[in-house]
Amino acid sequence: MSEADALAFPPLLWGEAVSTDAFDHACQRALLGCDAGLVAYRVNASVAQAALVFAPEVPLAKAMAMLPLCGVGFQNALGVMAPPEVAVHLDWDGGIRVNGAACGRFRAMASTADPAAVPDWLVIGFTLPLIPASDRPGDTPDQTSLYAEGCAEVSPHALIEAWARHSLNWINRWDEEGSRALHSEWRGLAQDMGEEITRDGLTGKFLGVDEDFGMLLRDGETTHLIPLTTVLEPAP
């Protein structure tokens, strides 16, 4: 591992540079019983990835707040490092938006899919494209990359470090203060709030989220609740 790859993380977090998918690596390490606080990360010329292992002490339904929390941590980190004209927003299901276009996403996996069970582990990770996927980016105007949005001076290694710091700060606030501050911060960053969207076969107005960040979707006279646990990827 080169000096550039040896990232510095705050207390309680520790890093592993990997050459494979960082999210998959973190999930495998969690499955084998690694300690919470592992940050697996991978940076190459085209992509930056990082994934954080949690050991929740609350049921999965509440622990899923770590998905929007890590998204807020990412926005806080990139918001400081990017030029001021760069806007970063978050999709409810983990997508990252930069200047309105999709720019990577967050993923989530846990040891259980039961919302009422306390999971042995939970992994939240992101993939961020650094350069366009093709040499014809105009063909996919709804997709973008970090460097294509005026962020060529942003170091992906420094961004991962900053994401870990900001996320840990939000974890501490969530532990000590509850979810109100996180809800407030996330609502200001949420993509498509108040808009007509389609999710899980339902089309309606995205009204907001409940206490556990479940989506409230208004369809005519009916308000549907779509739990955030529905975005979990199945554990191996």
Rank of each mutant, 00 (worst) to 15 (best):
G100M: 04
C103E: 01
G104I: 06
R105H: 13
R105K: 03
F106G: 00
R107I: 02
A108R: 00
A108N: 05
S111L: 09
T112I: 12
D114N: 14
V118S: 01
V118D: 00
D120P: 03
G125S: 13
F126L: 08
F126H: 06
L128C: 07
P129S: 12
L130R: 05
L130E: 04
I131T: 15
T140N: 12
T140A: 14
T140L: 15
P141G: 03
D142N: 13
T144C: 09
A148F: 03
E149Q: 10
E149V: 05
E149N: 07
G150D: 10
C151R: 03
E153G: 00
S155Y: 04
P156T: 01
H157V: 14
H157R: 13
I160Y: 12
A162H: 02
A162E: 15
A164W: 09
R165G: 02
H166D: 15
H166Q: 15
S167V: 06
L168N: 04
L168V: 01
I171Y: 13
I171S: 02
I171H: 03
N172T: 05
R173Q: 09
G178R: 06
R180G: 04
E185I: 03
W186M: 09
W186Q: 01
M193F: 11
M193K: 10
G194D: 10
E195C: 12
T198W: 06
D200I: 07
T203A: 11
T203N: 07
G204L: 13
G204R: 07
K205H: 13
